[in-house]
Write a protein that binds this DNA or RNA. Sequence first.
DNA 1: TTCGTGACGTGCA
DNA 2: GTGCACGCCACGA
Length: 104
Amino acid sequence: MLSMDNKKDALMQALYSIPPGRVVTYGQLAKLAGLGQAARYVGTALKNLPRETNLPWHRVINAKGKLSFAPGSEAYKRQKNLLVQEKVEFENEKINLRKFNWEP
DNA sequence: TTCGTGACGTGCA
DNA sequence: GTGCACGCCACGA
């Protein structure tokens, strides 16, 4: 035991618990996974996820309520599309955390 | 072990 | 609202 992958595991579990139609920030997810202020690590971890994954990585946005991708990029459009499909609304390229932020 | 990097966050001008 | 500096954590060379 004593696996050092627990951080990633905890992160993946926290990620998997995010309900559809809701979003959480990188910092929030880090805290939920028990990683403290490791928002940057969350981004790095999600980056390593395969494109074809069952995990709702698209429900993770930054504290400003926006996507952490260059506007117009393929990745940006991909994430936005997935969120819109879940009824998450965009107000001028940004999400209203008051309405869509998930608080467990 | 030390150094640089990153899909980040918060405070302040 | 926008931009910048600094802080945080984990990771790989």
